[in-house]
């Protein structure tokens, strides 16, 4: 019997990365649930941490891990397509104040891209980082697609989106309370525009209505940003 041999095979087996990702996610869900849904213990962060610790400890490189994990990664594109369903079902809300909401959506999308990419340029960051920052305020599957297309680094875009989302989710309630903006429509819509999925989950904790509004804004912002991004990047000379 040679356990070492078996282990060597196992950690480079194509499906190993897949199992590792699923397991890490499953544990992360349990941790997050026990912690009462805290944004900092978001299942992505815990899951990523578990996988990274394992890979480093076992001496497996990213490419080997990705052989199996890319199955999960590929599903991002069909998941983006699936967002058409909640968007369609939520559309009635948009019609209640079509002009103000659309105007806010467009301004929010522009501010999201220009503030991130513009500040990145101002600080003299490398082009690949500026392009990874640009889709910071859209939901991760959109941001990954947009970064891939524009020449950013999808991995970094993922990190920037998630960090923004967690930061937005943490500050939105105290900030909006202090500034007198704590209304479901204001809080929900701007959280969806600025802090996408993580923010939307936070809005759902505050109220069902704020959450649904945030989800609508998040979906619309994905489409608006995708359409505006090439124009804005060109205009900014990125």
């Amino acid at each position: 019997m040679n356990l070492y041999e078996g282990w060597q095979y196992l950690k480079s087996a194509p499906l190993f990365g897949l199992l590792l990702t699923l397991l890490a996610y499953r544990i992360a869900l349990a941790v997050n649930r026990r912690a009462g849904g805290k944004p900092l213990l978001h299942s992505v962060f815990v899951g990523v941490l578990l996988v990274v610790v394992f890979l480093l400890a076992a001496g497996v490189d990213y490419r080997t891990y990705m052989q199996g994990a890319s199955v999960v990664y590929w599903l991002l594109s069909p998941a983006t397509v699936a967002m058409a369903v909640p968007l369609y079902l939520n559309l009635a809300r948009l019609k209640r104040a079509f002009a103000p909401l659309t105007a806010t959506l467009l301004v929010g999308a522009v501010v999201g891209v220009v503030s991130a990419a513009g500040l990145g340029q101002l600080f003299g960051l490398p082009r690949e980082l500026v392009l990874s920052l640009a889709p910071r305020s859209v939901t991760t599957p959109f941001a990954i697609g947009l970064a891939e297309q524009s020449g950013g680094v999808p991995e970094f875009a993922t990190a920037f989106v998630l960090i923004s989302g967690v930061f937005g989710a943490i500050v939105v309630k105290p900030l909006f309370d202090r500034l007198g903006l704590a209304h479901d429509w204001l809080l929900g819509f701007s959280t969806g525009l600025a802090a996408h999925g993580v923010g939307t989950a936070r809005a759902f904790q505050l109220s069902e209505r704020a959450g649904a509004i945030a989800g609508l804004a998040m979906g619309l912002n994905g489409v608006a940003t995708a359409a505006l991004l090439p124009v804005l990047l060109h205009w900014m000379g990125v």
Binding site: I144, V153, A159, F160
Partner: peptide
């Protein structure tokens, strides 16, 4: 969020490329 784990792992493993810009990135975000 399951789908974000692989690229999140990539971000951590490639983060050496971010280290020198960490302060600027924090301000931007």
């Amino acid at each position: 969020s399951l789908l974000f784990i692989p690229s999140g792992v990539g971000a951590v493993l490639l983060s050496a490329r971010l280290a020198e810009h960490a302060a600027a990135l924090a301000v931007v975000l």
